[in-house]
Design a protein around this nucleic acid. Sequence first.
DNA 1: TTGAAAGCGCTAACAA
DNA 2: TTGTTAGCGCTTTCAA
Lengths: 341, 341
Amino acid sequence: MTRPLNRPLTLRDVSEASGVSEMTVSRVLRNRGDVSEATREKVLRAAKALGYVPNRIAGSLASQRVNLVAVIIPSMSNMVFPEVMTGINRVLEDTPLQPVVGITDYLPEKEEKVLYEMLSWRPSGIIIAGLEHSDASRAMLRASGIPVVEIMDADGTPVDAMVGISHRRAGREMAEAILKAGYRRIGFMGTKMALDHRARKRFEGFTQALAKGGVEIADHEFYTGGSALSKGRELTADMMARTPDLDFLYYSNDLIGAGGLLWLLEQGYDIPGRIGLAGFNGVELLQGLPRRLATMDACRAEIGRRAAEIIVARTADPVREADKQVILTPTIDRGDTLRMP
Amino acid sequence: MTRPLNRPLTLRDVSEASGVSEMTVSRVLRNRGDVSEATREKVLRAAKALGYVPNRIAGSLASQRVNLVAVIIPSMSNMVFPEVMTGINRVLEDTPLQPVVGITDYLPEKEEKVLYEMLSWRPSGIIIAGLEHSDASRAMLRASGIPVVEIMDADGTPVDAMVGISHRRAGREMAEAILKAGYRRIGFMGTKMALDHRARKRFEGFTQALAKGGVEIADHEFYTGGSALSKGRELTADMMARTPDLDFLYYSNDLIGAGGLLWLLEQGYDIPGRIGLAGFNGVELLQGLPRRLATMDACRAEIGRRAAEIIVARTADPVREADKQVILTPTIDRGDTLRMP
DNA sequence: TTGAAAGCGCTAACAA
DNA sequence: TTGTTAGCGCTTTCAA
């Protein structure tokens, strides 16, 4: 009652209010050790009445344990990472661990900064997108002494554990399917991807497999920013004007693919006869389009799940080294825009 | 060199490696107080060589300052909250403050839990979606002693500060515009919204304004889960089969509206002549559709920005009480699906 | 089952 | 400009 306004409550306040030692109050609040039911009730009542919220800063410092998992991803706005988060959440929900998200905007310097910030909170584990990091970042990850799971990509060597798909293979398989279906004049549209290594790898795998089939990309275009759906329209319109004989368009993501699909339908193109289309990611949105765009699932939710499971397992038993490399293999969904061979 | 593996580095390690007192090392790493350039360099070199990452847990406990802003929102997956986050980030980027996100899934109990967790880290401020909270949550917010900004909604009384739009008014204005344009047989589709208070308020404002014009909702349907785009298709198909004489469809969000729009176009409906449509949110996606859906911008990014600005201002100067209630007033974007009166 | 003492790693406040 | 001392609020450890 005489507590100065705005001084946060401490264990001591609860201790005084309940007439129980700080130590026992702490035990009650953490459900640790044996405490008599009577004391327990007394303490809980006092804590609730005061509106006490434990100070985890102090708790973590004392216990040298922090139940946070740092999740470092490039972006939140492109439908893929929210799904990864869903997978992670689903697993961590049943544990004391809590995810904390950091965003890098695909910038290595920002990744470095975010990683440093995160590590300064001494989390119990790290889930980080991609296998490409600055030397400094890699050094921090290695030195952290906590489980590190690199996700989304499987083309490379992880610092510690890894859960993802091979984007090179994804690009390759799509190219093979396209060739097998008889398409030959192929255009590519995607984000400007110097820093999006996964998009880059898909593109590389794609062109390599085409080359193996004796086919070269007939046209390609990269974009930045803007609404993906309308970008897809514009790019497609431009490209079809420039290279009218294209018979297939491969998009680096489903959203610009959807834009292209809508435009082509409006123009009256016969799909997938005159021209075929494919995107990448397997986003839910595609279900509602006039035609189902061919795509390949990036296994986003499963990647999140498996990564979180690794962190949980390692947190429980740090020596265990199983499941360090989980490589998922998505398959092509032909939808209505990629004809059968 | 003889440091036991996996013992995290401390200030003391840097102090010993550089031959400078812990206190001065701390000063260098925080850019506080006057330190000679020579010592500064020595310390930074040592810290870098060791790969030292400061322990913020200890730092925060000692300084009684935590540069985190808790952001509590219902969901990450529906395009609206990522944009709010963008607005918040843009402002906090230029400050020492960092956002930490908690997700409630629209559940009051979960909100309570998340809020408790967040408060246990003693953040510098709270940004929380909505004005409806459990009594316990409201009590925690009040007792926290830190700036609290409730966002997205302006129909109600905030615990502290508030930044949002009136959803009741949004629904009302849309209804008025629809009536003025001469539509009379109006259907509504939306999420099951017992817990989505903003959607509920829009619906209430909408039906009230219709009633004032002597019109009653001719049909309505609520959905849960699934891809919003395909839900929009299904619901629209069902509703048009059930109530074929509808001449306007109001959707509680743009994505189901987009699904409805695609379906109606496929069926050859004359839009906005035979039937008009409107959604809500002003999502970027709409730019790429065959027709631009009428909508109303929810001012998502601006809400994030203004909320963050309030936190920043109050953190710098806790007494300042200005800008406690920011009510934004979005206007209708008629797109191509709501004809002029 | 309960309590007392000693820190966790850092920073505020003051002294030199 | 640099160093020393005394905590921050909690938990670990050990004793009662």
